[in-house]
Nucleic acid binder design. Structure first.
Lengths: 345, 345
DNA sequence: TGAATATTTGCAAACGTTTGCAGGGTTGCT
DNA sequence: AGCAACCCTGCAAACGTTTGCAAATATTCA
């Protein structure tokens, strides 16, 4: 075996060695055309392919067929613990189906979202999984009519026709609110997320309807809207509430990161959680059971959602355009120590 | 503007429109050959390119040039909070340089590492950033002689010639041990990581030399070796120690995840941290300051390391093969509340 | 002015596949 | 035996670029 394998072995090389035409080799290798060639020949071909260590050139293939077997994933911020499990779910099921995943982190910036979207388009990805959707998202809207299949995950857009894999936010918030109501809380604050992303928006609405359903009137003074799903935003919003001297015994944060910020604020103002104020999160992200106090939150199976989105996308790519339909997963409540009975004031 | 843009516009299309040869257009677009064509012509070409919305076909380009402008990243487990910042660092600097990043999660499995490595090879990546190296790693060893540039990050292999971006583990462990020694600890346990990865191995050795340098003799009975960097491994190892009734006042875990497991075990056995036993981690991963008690650990700038690895790789890809050399970053100690003075027994 | 040289563009052959079409050889059927 | 039907394989034209070489034109210089 020569150590100088200058150039990779090509379809033509193996054809030459067998003294057949390249197309024959090609046909043997392609399952769809495999049956066109005689078994004996196929046998010989496979042997030579094996022996020579032939590997198809993906560029030539893609150039010819316009299929890249690459799918793109758009993530708002990969350091947010929410997203790695999703990526993992996507990557696994895609890899199993023979696809490679290319990743772009948009840093929560619509401008970078657009740029990355274009890059993926130029790379001719076979499909796109998007976790960066804003509620009204021009990039996605205008790309919909395009030729490239895409699935939203976690966040969706205004148009209900858009295929997506999300969780049932209304249900999740319902669980939280009735949990708190059952503990006797009546004055409950809501630390809402950025209203241009669907999850934050829906959770906000859901909070109000859940309150009413529990026989409580949501107080506008107790609703704070944050600009992003970040810890310090949560801290700021909760501090605001506390500073203004608002009266409340529980805070429903739109996500775990915000909730952690709230916890900070509670400590900062010399209050205790849950004795003075209960706090809840959303997502049950990793390690949220290790913080002090362990956070009551809502669990979403993020990896599973990634996998589902991938499967949905595969169906679309493989032409089953009818196989549309979105999926909304039912989250479950996980009660820990950040919620407790309302203080007997 | 027709809404039916059936097929993307090609180099030939814009050439035809200008009544020039495709090669001319190609030359205008390529910075290296740009000077070959007259300015006036170049002007016209650019205009047409702009106007027709021409985008080069990456497959054709790659097929011709054997350059993919794709780099691969091999990660052992993307849900380990250690790695997202690295990925982010890599992705950002690569994107800025015009490269796309493809990601593979090997799930800590050598077999999957090999498979993913091969896939990337077949995809003709221009370079590889590898965070999955084991100390003796046949896959990497045998790929070294290959044509494809690669940089290790975080973990390295036995051969010191291999280019990598790591942290100075010996220094980091030194900081930890002298911190504990200064607090009066004399019987210090070490919860080591899997010895087939360089970080765990080096930290283990470093622990012993740091102990001696502090005038203490490391007790083999106080050294536990875990099979993976996982929480439950840490819990198991620490429980073992406690169950055996070993006497010690501090535990140096090889990383934060193991440390969290240790903390669990301490609680489980009715001890308090840091009053009874001090615990330290390594990495200063996100949220480790929020757990109870906030963890004393060693900080590594993961995103920065990702970026450095990317820059190093770019240099190699761009032919500056001389620009080798590895980088070892000096970590810093961050003291929180999981370490305290030795209990006055 | 004429030859040498420099500048600009065109030509055509790749790069490694896929695939419609056609031809040659077998087989089956009447 | 003759014809149709089939099965297998080869042929050649793509796919959209890049690039060495040649040709044509413009410039320089003595």
């Amino acid at each position: 075996m020569s150590t100088m394998k200058r150039t990779r072995v090509t379809l033509r090389d193996v054809a030459r060695r067998l003294d057949v035409h390249p197309s024959t080799v090609s046909r043997v290798l392609n399952p769809r055309t495999r049956s066109m060639v005689a078994d004996a020949m196929a046998e010989r071909v496979m042997e030579a392919v094996e022996d020579m260590g032939y590997r198809p050139n993906p560029f030539a293939y893609s150039l010819k067929t316009n299929r890249s077997f690459i799918i793109g994933v758009l993530i708002p911020d990969i350091t947010d613990p929410l997203f790695p499990p999703i990526i993992q779910g996507v990557e696994r099921t895609m890899a199993a189906a023979g696809y490679t995943t290319i990743l772009a982190d948009t840093d929560n910036d619509p401008e970078r979202q657009r740029v990355n979207f274009d890059i993926m388009r130029e790379r001719q990805v076979d499909g796109l999984i998007i976790a960066t959707a804003r509620y009204e998202d021009p990039v996605i809207e205008e790309a919909r009519s395009g030729d490239i299949p895409m699935i939203l995950v976690i966040r969706t857009i205004a148009d209900p026709e858009m295929p997506c894999v999300i969780n049932d936010d209304a249900h999740g918030i319902g669980l939280i609110v009735s949990h708190l109501a059952a503990l006797g809380h009546r004055r409950i604050a809501h630390i809402a997320g950025p209203q241009d992303v669907s999850t934050a928006r829906v959770r906000h609405r859901a909070f109000e309807v859940a309150m009413r359903k529990a026989g409580l009137e949501p107080d506008p003074a107790l609703i704070q809207i944050c600009c992003s799903f970040a810890e310090d935003e949560g801290r700021g919003a909760a501090s605001d509430l506390l500073e203004r001297g608002e009266k409340f015994t529980a805070m429903v944060a739109a996500n775990d990161l915000l909730a952690i910020g709230c916890l900070d604020a509670v400590k900062l103002f010399g209050k205790r959680c849950p004795e003075d104020i209960s706090v809840t999160g959303y997502n049950d992200m990793p390690f949220v059971d290790k913080i002090q106090p362990p956070l009551t939150t809502v669990r979403i199976p993020h990896d599973e959602m990634g996998a589902m989105a991938a499967r949905l996308l595969l169906k679309r790519i493989e032409g089953d355009a009818t196989a549309s339909g979105s999926i909304a997963i039912r989250p479950e409540l996980v009660v820990r120590e950040s919620t407790g009975p309302v203080p007997t004031a």
